[in-house]
């Protein structure tokens, strides 16, 4: 059975690009949201296997939405989508419990590889993995 994805980004173009990439693979996009509030609402309703979450959005940020989703489901798998220069926000998201992050503008290969890794990993980026990420940022 195909793994399901919820795509969250306030820019239509980015959502469209992500959906195109994901639909070409074995993943099934079950929903899309343009802000954090809608993302939380859709997560409750759709229970996707993984969420791609833009880090900066109006109304409710990606970090806040990730925190709320992880409160609903502590095993939720979330990959943050970030722009260059948002290292502090990425660290905040990792400390909140998200699985991984990808920098914009991303390639098809990077997206699929990161999502695959997050789906097969049962550990959060905490402890030693988090320290490694902190160094690489």
């Amino acid at each position: 059975m195909a793994k399901t994805v919820l795509v969250v980004d306030d820019i239509t173009f980015v959502r469209k690009t992500l959906i195109e990439i994901l639909q070409k693979s074995h993943l099934q996009v079950v929903g899309e949201a343009e802000d954090g509030e809608k993302a939380v609402e859709l997560y409750r309703k759709l229970q996707p296997d993984i969420v791609t979450m833009d880090i900066v959005m109006p109304e409710m940020s990606g970090i806040e939405a990730a925190r709320k989703i992880l409160k609903i489901d502590k095993n939720a798998k979330i990959v943050m989508i970030s722009a260059l220069g948002q290292e502090n926000l990425v660290m905040e998201a990792i400390n909140a419990g998200v699985k991984d992050y990808i920098l914009k503008p991303f390639s098809e290969e990077e997206i699929l590889k990161t999502i695959e890794k997050a789906l097969t990993s049962d550990e959060r980026l905490t402890g030693r993995a988090s320290q490694r990420t902190q160094k690489s940022l």
Partner: peptide
Amino acid sequence: EISQCLEIGNTMVSQLAN
């Protein structure tokens, strides 16, 4: 498309700010 323009702008400004 305007949303493509916004994303090009976002990409350029994040590199500039960095």
